[in-house]
Amino acid sequence: MKPFDLIKTTDPKHALLQKKEQVQYIAGGTNLVDLMKKNIQVPDTLLDVTEALGHRIDKQGKAVQIGAMARNTTVATDAMILRDFPLIAKAVLAGASPQIRNMASTAGNLLQRTRCPYFYDVTTACNKRKPGSGCSAYEGQNRMSAVVGYSTDCVAVHPSDLCVGLAALDAEVHVFGKDQKKSVIPFEEFHRLPGNTPHLDNNLPEHALITSIEIPENPFDKNCAYLKVRDRDSYSFALVSVAAALHLDGDRIIDARLASGGVAHKPWRWRDAEQFLRGKSATAATFGEAARLIVGDLKPLTHNGFKIDMLKGAVETALGQCLHV
């Protein structure tokens, strides 16, 4: 690890003033410290923002505001989140381990880097780690890689579970910019597709701080599920995951939300399938149709064709689980 200065700040304005190239914010450190040990990220200064930003979870009107520094465990065990936004708690609990969730912050979870093995192996080419060097995964060991939205320059997937839930519920990211101006980024526009600039994971303006996440009130508190399929039962990243939520009137679907992790460079919303489900009756046949619609869009790589059947099954199962809660 390259030596660095560590500065603790209790003021977000001060943090923004100090932030420049080679200076990086640190929250729980669960991703950044790991990447620094591997010399994938080599800041010369760390700004500890754990006491500069909010960690409270508050209802504001009918929406909930989750402070950037709210720990993953706090989010998953908060009584109001469990009651009104249970999909979020389920998604968080499907991620990492109790120890890591105790450390990890909400903002850090959004900004964690991909787990593509080539990104982690500094002896290989990776456009995300070293722009212009090439993508080793595109024709390499790509069983964990994307099946939709990728480019020949990058097939990495975003590893977060929380973000899949946030995408499904139309969350918003509240940002404090280098120019000291506040702005709001809709969740779907926060993470980006790789295109030919895969070194950029998201559209957070340079040097900006995430201050909180807002989730609007929604009718999906009763019938929702988060299903994660992985190489082992727990403490493993998703091969595919599905956040499913239904708003029902009897067995008629008024509204539906479907999003996936492990399939793309960003949490992926299945808008066509959501549209298809609206107005239909909530039956296994309907869910099967929706799942078929979803996998029709997939373009697997050499080693991840299995994700088609896996995702199809996961969508059907998750929608089914929405009825049994």
Binding site: L6, G29, T30, D48, P98, Q99, N102, M103
Partner: peptide, 13 residues
Amino acid sequence: GERVLSCLTLSAM
């Protein structure tokens, strides 16, 4: 009082 991973915790924090 909470369990954490000491290998990913910077002592300065």
